[in-house]
Simulated assay, not measured.
Amino acid sequence: MRKILPLSILLTAALGCSALVFAAPQQDGTPTAGQHAGWQHGGHRGHHGAFMALKKLNLTDDQKAQVKQIFKQGFSQLKPQMQAVHQQRAAFEALTPDAAGYQQAAASLAQAEAALTQARVTQGAATRAQIYNVLTSAQKSQLATMRAERQQRMQQWKQQHAQQANGSTQSAQ
C-alpha cells in the first residue's frame, strides 16, 4: 500500500514522458528486450527512454533546459490531483467490503481515477506538443524517421508472430 503513491507518480511521469519514449536500438537497428524506438503510446515500459530520445535528437543545452522545465511543469500540474486520488484510494482500501458506503467509495474512487487518467492523457498531449515545438525542423524530421522505422519494425514483428501462431495451431491439429 505504501508503494502506491510512488508508483502513481512514476506512472504519471511515464505517461507524461511517453511522447518521447525511445530506447537505444542495437547495432543492427532492432531494439533489445524491453526497449522501443519511436513514440511510445503509454504503458509502463521505457519511461527513462524519453531522456534517451533527447540524446538521439542531439538537443542543445537550451533545448534540454526547456524540455526539463516542460516536464517539471506538467508534473507539478498533475501532482495535487494525484495526491488526492492517492488519499482517496488509501481511504477506500482501509474499508472492508461489508462496511457502510463501501460501494459508494468504490464508485467515487473510480470516478477520481477516471478524471486523473483524463488529466494525465491531456497533460501528456500538451507536454508532447510543447516539446515538439522546441525541436528544430531537422530534429522533427529525424523524429518522424525514427517513428516510421519503429512502425515498420512493429509490423514485421506482428507478421512474424502471426506466422508463428498459425504454424503452432496447425501443428497442434
Rank of each mutant, 00 (worst) to 15 (best):
M1G: 11
M1P: 11
R2F: 15
P6K: 04
L7K: 08
S8Y: 12
S8I: 10
S18H: 03
Q27S: 13
G29I: 04
Q40K: 14
Q40M: 14
H41Q: 12
G42E: 01
A53E: 04
N58D: 10
T60W: 02
Q63K: 01
A65D: 04
Q66Y: 04
Q66M: 09
Q69N: 04
Q73R: 08
Q73I: 07
K79G: 02
Q81F: 02
Q83N: 11
Q83L: 13
A84E: 09
V85H: 06
V85Y: 05
H86E: 07
R89F: 11
A91H: 06
F92D: 01
L95Y: 03
Y102P: 02
Q103H: 13
A105V: 02
A106S: 11
A106K: 08
A106G: 10
A107L: 13
A107F: 08
T117L: 14
A119E: 05
G124E: 04
A125I: 14
A129F: 01
I131T: 02
I131A: 02
I131K: 02
N133C: 03
T136R: 00
A138I: 00
K140L: 03
K140G: 01
S141V: 05
A148F: 03
R150G: 15
R153Y: 10
Q155D: 15
Q155A: 15
Q156F: 08
W157M: 14
W157Y: 15
Q160M: 08
Q160H: 09
A162L: 10
Q164N: 11
Q164Y: 07
G167C: 01
T169H: 11
Q170E: 09
Q170W: 12
S171V: 14
A172L: 10
A172S: 12
